[in-house]
Every structure is written in C-alpha cells, then in structure tokens.
Amino acid sequence: MFHRSRYLQTTEAGRAEQWQRARMLVQIFALLTLYTTASFVMPRWAEWRVATGIVPLWPIQWMAWLPTPTAVDIICLYALGATAGAFFFVERRGWRLNAALAVLFLHALINSFGKINHSWHPWVLVTCAFVFLPTGPWRTYPPADERRDHFYAVIWGAQLLVMVIYTLSGLWKIYGIITQWQEGTMTALHPTAFAYQVANRTLQTNTVGPLSRLIIQVPWLGWLPYLTVIYLETFAVVTVWRPRLQRLWAVGLIGFHIGSWLTMTITFNAQILVLGLLFWFSPFVPAENSLRQVLRELPIVKEMLRLVRDWNRLHGTTRSSQGSKVTIQNTEGTEEFMPISADRRATDI
C-alpha cells in the first residue's frame, strides 16, 4: 500500500527538499483557499442576500431556520474568517477543520440554485483531507519518521481522492462506449464523437469557445485528444501508486481542462490548481525521472512489459535475463543463476 522506499527520495538533500515541498504544497493550498473563497464571496455576497429560488443543499439546510440575509452573512463571514485563519495558522488542526466546514458550507450555497456544478468538488475534498495533517510545528527538519510518514500519507490520501474522481469519470465513458456499441449507435471511439459533444454543448448554452467551430467543422481533429483523455481519466488513480507518472498526468489533465474551455467553454480552474499543486508539485515524484522510466510505468504498457518478461522467463532465456545471469565456477563445476535484483520487484521502486 504505502511503500516508504517508493515515496521517499533517495538522498539526504532530496529528502529535505521533499519535506519542504510537502509543507509548501499545504501552505500554498491554504493561501489559494483563502483567495478563491474571497473571490467567490465578495462579488456575490449582496446578490445572495436578496436571492430567491434558493433550495439549500444538505450542509446548509439550517438556512431554513433563519432569514436568508442572516444565513448568507453567517456563511460568508465564516468562510472568510475560517480560511484566513487556516492560512495564518495552517499548522493548527482546529483552523483547518473550520476552513473545511466553511468551504463545504460556501460551496453548498453556491450550488443551491438548481444545479450542482462539479468543478469545485475536488477542492472541497482536499480541504477536508488536509484536516488530517498532523498538528505543527512543521518547520523542524528532519522530522520524526512517524510524523513525516503521517504528513505524506495525508497528501497521498488527497491525491487519491482527486484521482478517484477522474477514474470514475473515465469508467463512465467506458461504460458509455459499451452501452452505445450494444445499441448500435455512435460511441466515443468514433472519429466524430468529440465534435458531437462540442456541438451539443454549444447548443445547450448558446455559447461558442475559441475552438468550438473548428472542431465541429473538422470533426476528426478532436478524435485523438478525446481518446487520450479517456485513457488519462480511466487510469488516473494508478498514478497514486506510480509517482513517476504524476507530472505526466498533471500536464495531460490540465491540458484536458484547458481544451474543455477552448472547445466547450467549461471552466475547471479549481481542478487545474489542484492538479498543479498535488501532482506537478508532488513531493513523491522521484528526483531522477527519465522519459524512458515514465513510459515503462504507463498503465497497460507496464502490464504488457511484465507479461512479456514473464512469458520469456517461462520459455527459457531472454536477452535481459541472460545479461543478468551470474556464472560461478567452483570445485563442482560451473553454475549459473539469476540474482534476486533482476527480479521484477527491482523495477517497481
């Protein structure tokens, strides 16, 4: 589950940088939470106070007991105060807990106008996950092993929650492919599939992104990117266990969100920030991370390589295993054996 050797940097300098990176990640997240909360609250506070048609989601159903302006004031003030407190006192769990509750209330309010938008769900989840970080001080280095592992385990957990969301989205798309294929209708594998998604979205909102018309007029342009997105989404959760892939997935999924805006005017700013922080800025990416190593870790590719290696091993010698064989000459003759390090476990780390 959590192989310390896989997640810890190998050198002392690397481990110090890793710890600093992990701490900074949480501090930057707290700053962004304060900033985004203020940018949500300040322009809309007055509008929310007089809004009609609010159907409160479960976290803010207590709004029904109070006049709407009072309830809105409480949510906005609490959101600003708690996220500011969590930024200035990020090492204190009490403040982080308050910030998580405040962010939950605020986004429940934002989504209580007839439709639940999903772009801020990961942010809410990560805010809740960070409540479990150990209480400070975090500045001491080196931290005790248990404290450091606790810290990393929470960041790992936040990564897991974010990537599970993408994997669910990918699995639904695979399910959609299977059901539409069974029905005999167009599936996501069709070259014009993405153009249909773009066209339908432009009709829903009557808005056009910078690349919408191009994709609708030249439908096959979106084919390969769309298939790539399905792959990235479906296997996103795997990257939590294969940290070498985290930066590649960060770039791929951020590119996907930028593409969604260019073609369908869908903004996922929060997800871009979360991906950048948790996966591009990830403390778990090994210091040495060549393209070859990354490619060998890709989902399906890694499994295929393992299959080929096992197949070759089963059917005698292979080029790689032959190179790893050690010959020992002793009084009883010559003996060949393969050292344990040539086993597949060595490539897992």
Binding site: H118, I165, T185
Partner: peptide
C-alpha cells in the same frame, strides 16, 4: 440524485449524435 460533494462523475459519458432536449 446527488449528495454534494459526492457524485458519480457521469459526465459526457454518451455521444449525443442524434438527441433531444
């Protein structure tokens, strides 16, 4: 239905080639 912030993430799962709204 959805229980915010929990969701299935069934987004753009089907191709709306010939559709209705």
């Amino acid at each position: 239905r959805e229980y915010f912030p929990i969701y299935s993430w069934d987004l753009f799962s089907y191709i709306p080639a010939h559709t209705a709204d």
